[in-house]
């Protein structure tokens, strides 16, 4: 029986995602894996859901997964609050009040869409990050929209189980939200479609998925019992533009594919041999750079070539 210890780094911010994914990839092929958290001081929401999602996949495959280094971990309380330990099967006594989470973070949520729709889960995440904020507030609406679209993609494209969490950093006015699933990955979702040739590699598949109007669902024979399409391939493209306009970033990892854009500038692909079964999407938005969400969304739609009606006869007060 082969046993592997994966020691998580002390801090994982967006820059360190690829290295983390490469590190997790080492676990494949082992019967027993221990995730050592002794050095951990901070993990972003994306890092947390990536580890949880990967561990759950291993567990489903019959691999024994355990946590080590709990006594040495300076951030044990933080990881507990994020429900990182709970999702890996460790329940320790808690010395904090759960309602403290409001306004700062959303603990890891295991997304069972059969028991909650996309709208309810996205709203719950947004209310948790911005408690007491009016649902007409521009920042609230932008985050709710992005959460809705990311969760919708996980629900319909992954075919697997998804995890999400989020965090608000008041000093930097920064919101981080991440969704990870252990489904088929983006490349496989294009397999058998007319655009399969444009998605031969995971990197190519990400680029194809980011194109406005491209959705693997639109390219398949429509098996929808209601006819029509549930997707138009618009949500991810608009989320990408919102991230750019809000001074934030979008990162996507799927299999060995990687994409990261900061304020609209694509970053050089890291040289590490990363791998993530399924899809990981991480989004950051700067709260102070979202002044008029309706105008931002309209401009984003215009950027992908979609404009509203010339006439407003269809609207009444």
């Amino acid at each position: 029986m082969s046993h592997l210890v994966i020691a998580l780094p002390d801090r994982v911010f967006e820059e360190q995602f690829p290295a983390l994914l490469a590190l997790l990839n080492d676990g494949d092929g082992h019967n027993s894996i221990q995730i050592d958290i002794s050095r951990v001081k901070f993990l972003t929401p994306a890092a947390i859901v990536a580890v949880v999602s990967r561990c759950h996949r291993w567990m489903r495959e019959g691999v024994k997964v355990s946590l080590g280094g709990l006594n040495q971990c300076e951030s044990l309380g933080y990881l507990q609050r994020m429900d990182f330990l709970t999702h890996l099967g460790i329940d320790l006594p808690e010395t904090f009040q759960r309602h403290d989470a409001d306004g700062r973070f959303v603990p890891v949520k295991s997304l069972n869409f059969a028991h909650g729709n996309v709208d309810a889960i996205a709203s719950e995440i947004t209310h948790c990050v911005f408690p007491g904020t009016s649902p007409y507030d521009d920042v609230f609406q932008a985050l709710q929209y992005a959460a809705g679209e990311l969760l919708s993609n996980a629900k319909y494209h992954s075919g697997g189980r998804a995890f999400a969490c989020a965090q608000f950093f008041p000093q930097r006015n920064l919101v981080r939200i991440a969704v990870a699933d252990d489904g088929q990955g983006i490349r496989m979702s294009f397999t058998g479609t007319s655009r399969e040739n444009e998605a031969q590699t995971p990197d190519e598949a990400i680029r194809l998925a980011l194109q406005p109007g491209v959705s693997s669902a639109l390219l398949r024979p429509n098996l929808n019992p209601y006819g029509g399409q549930n997707h138009r391939g618009v949500g991810l493209s608009i989320t990408r533009i919102l991230a750019k306009e809000a001074g934030g970033e979008l990162a996507i990892g799927t299999e060995s594919g990687w994409f990261r854009e900061i304020r609209g500038h694509e970053q050089t692909r890291p040289r590490v041999a990363l791998s993530f079964p399924g899809t990981l999407v991480a989004l950051t938005l700067h709260r102070d750079q979202i002044a008029d969400y309706a105008a931002m969304h309209e401009a984003a739609m215009a950027e992908i070539g979609m404009a509203g009606l010339d006439t407003h006869d269809i609207f009444s007060d």
Binding site: P135, G148, Q229
Partner: peptide
């Protein structure tokens, strides 16, 4: 649908 309309499947 509630105050936030997000699920394409439900819309369809």
């Amino acid at each position: 649908f509630g105050d936030f309309l997000a699920d394409g499947h439900l819309g369809n």
